[in-house]
Amino acid sequence: MNRPIVTLRASGAQLEYPDGKPTLLEALELHRVPVEYQCRSGYCGACRCRLLKGRVAYRQQPLACVNEGEILPCCCEVMGDVEIEI
């Protein structure tokens, strides 16, 4: 089974999403992609980024305000291939 691919719009990098259902933030960290964050639980919104393609699912409903087209990588996991803008 193929792993989902996370594409970073700015660089065009394509990163394989690891097994084990990590958060998107954890997956980005595994690939050494620098992401601003503070709380890791959807409270502060510091990790906010744009979801350009694909879908994510939240482990818990974020408390930070999330606008249309934005996601919080700290508390979501990908549901197939996604493209994001950090």
Rank of each mutant, 00 (worst) to 15 (best):
M1T: 14
N2G: 04
N2A: 15
R3P: 08
P4M: 10
I5V: 15
I5R: 12
V6E: 12
V6S: 09
V6W: 05
T7L: 07
L8G: 04
R9S: 10
R9K: 15
A10W: 02
A10M: 04
S11W: 08
S11P: 10
G12V: 09
Q14Y: 03
L15Q: 10
L15A: 03
L15S: 06
L15C: 06
L15N: 06
E16W: 00
E16I: 13
E16V: 13
E16C: 08
E16M: 02
P18F: 02
D19E: 14
D19V: 01
D19C: 00
D19S: 07
G20V: 04
G20T: 03
K21N: 11
P22G: 05
T23G: 05
L24I: 11
L24D: 01
L25H: 02
L25F: 04
L25Y: 01
L25C: 09
E26Y: 05
E26S: 12
E26P: 03
E26N: 05
A27Y: 03
A27L: 00
A27D: 02
A27C: 11
A27P: 03
A27H: 06
L28Q: 05
L28V: 08
L28P: 11
E29T: 08
L30P: 00
L30I: 04
L30Y: 08
L30W: 05
H31L: 04
H31P: 00
R32F: 06
V33E: 15
V33N: 05
V33P: 02
V33H: 07
P34K: 15
P34V: 02
P34N: 05
P34F: 05
V35A: 02
Y37K: 05
Y37L: 01
C39H: 03
C39V: 05
R40F: 01
R40V: 01
S41H: 06
G42L: 03
G42C: 01
Y43W: 00
Y43C: 00
Y43F: 12
C44N: 01
C44I: 01
C44P: 02
G45A: 04
A46Q: 09
C47T: 05
C47R: 02
C47L: 09
C47Y: 04
R48T: 08
C49S: 06
C49E: 07
C49T: 08
R50C: 00
R50W: 09
G54C: 09
G54F: 09
V56G: 07
A57C: 00
A57R: 15
A57K: 12
A57L: 10
A57V: 05
A57P: 00
R59V: 11
Q60D: 11
Q61N: 04
P62G: 06
P62S: 07
L63K: 15
L63R: 14
L63N: 02
L63F: 11
A64G: 10
C65M: 10
N67E: 15
E68K: 15
E68C: 07
E68V: 12
G69Y: 10
E70V: 02
E70W: 10
E70S: 12
E70G: 11
I71Q: 01
L72M: 07
P73H: 13
C74H: 08
C74S: 11
C75Q: 09
C76Q: 12
E77D: 14
E77G: 14
E77A: 14
V78T: 15
V78I: 14
M79H: 09
M79N: 13
G80Y: 11
G80Q: 11
G80L: 13
G80R: 13
G80P: 14
D81H: 12
D81Q: 14
V82L: 10
V82P: 04
V82T: 10
V82G: 09
I84T: 14
I84W: 12
I84Y: 07
